[in-house]
Structures are given as C-alpha cells and as structure tokens.
C-alpha cells in the first residue's frame, strides 16, 4: 500500500490540520509516514503545500516525485492546479470550489473549473457551504478531507479516530463539529 498525497491551499486555510489527521490515522494503522510542510514566510497569505506520504514500506524521500501523487487535496480551487505536475495519470484531484482571492490577477471561476475538468478523476465540492449546512462553518477543511477519504487507502473509522484525537483537547463540541464536517464531506462524494 502506498498513498502519496499533495495538500494545497493558501496560508491560514488549515491544510496542516488535514495533514495531521491523515498522519495520525497512518500511525494508528502502523504505516510509515513522511510529511513535508511549509513554515515561515509563505504562511502569510501565500500558496502553501504539504507532501504527505504513507506506505506499508519504508519511505525514502520527504518530497513526492513528479507524477507520483495518488491524490491532490486542495482547500482552494486555483491552488489545486498548481501541483498538477505531481499528479499521477490515474490520480484524483479533490478540491473546494470556493476561491480565496487575494491577488489582482486571479482567474475567473469558469477558467478554473474548465481546467479542473480536464483531469479525468476530479471532484469539486462547495466545502464551505457543506460545512455551514452541517452546522460546523469553520470546518471546511474537514469537509474536504471527508470528500477525499474514499481515495485514501485507510479505513474511514481510523480517520474519525484521528479527528477525535486531533481536536480532543478543544472539547467535545469541537470534536463533534469536525466529525460532522468529515461525514458530510464523505456523503458528498459519489461512491
């Protein structure tokens, strides 16, 4: 088993929480893991990405080679396209449809959707809206993780456990909100 995952978004959108959740689930499953993060300057509203590699065999490189990623999980639509060189031929692209516009030359929504649709295996969901409807407006990132969960080779239950662990310190209410977000994202995925 091997899953190479690129997580992408804009600094402050919470991609590291997604990475941490998948990481905790990987540890629970006794898998090897390497996860490379971006800290420092780029966190200030710039593009951020994380390379997450999980496998049942030891992993060499902290970075995913081009063309190897099984999955791109993005909390921002334009950012999902920035990492296409990493996506494998059969890889899945799962992204939020809501743009984060903080640059003057941001492309139109139609242009972005058209590019995403060129990828055979893609899934676009309105994570923010789904999060709101499930009563956990601030958990858009967990909605995206839920939507991507069928493409991650681990039991859904272990992701749920990871979310419980990750948010455990913040109290039952926050754990429940994030679990709801995770489930509503998963429900939004055509199985």
């Amino acid at each position: 088993m091997k899953n190479d995952i690129i997580l992408s978004g804009v600094g402050g959108q919470g991609i590291l929480s997604i990475a941490a959740a998948i990481g905790l689930a990987a540890v629970e499953n006794g898998l090897f893991l390497k996860q490379s993060e971006v800290h420092g300057m780029s966190q200030r509203g710039g593009d951020v990405q994380s390379h997450l590699r999980i496998s049942d065999k030891p992993i060499s490189s902290d970075l995913i080679p081009y063309g190897f990623a099984d999955l791109i999980i993005s909390v921002e639509p334009m950012e999902s396209l920035r990492y296409l060189p990493w996506l494998s031929e059969k890889g899945w692209l799962v992204t939020n449809s809501n743009p984060f516009i903080n640059i003057p030359d941001y492309p139109s929504a139609e242009e972005i959707i058209a590019e995403i649709k060129k990828i055979t295996n893609h899934l676009i969901i309105d994570a923010d809206n789904i999060a709101k409807q499930s009563g956990s407006a601030r958990s858009g990132n967990m909605v995206i993780l839920g939507a991507a969960s069928p493409y991650i080779d681990m039991d859904y239950e272990s992701l749920q456990n990871a979310v419980k662990k990750l948010f455990g310190k913040k109290g039952t209410e926050i754990v429940e909100a994030n679990l709801r977000a995770l489930q509503s994202g998963r429900d939004a995925t055509p199985m």
């Binding site: 509203g45 334009m78 492309p107």
Partner: peptide, 9 residues
Amino acid sequence: IVKMRPPSF
C-alpha cells in the same frame, strides 16, 4: 491561468 500568489500582509 494559475497565477503567482506571493505572501502578503
């Protein structure tokens, strides 16, 4: 269509 997104305040 993917544009640069430099860090900002």
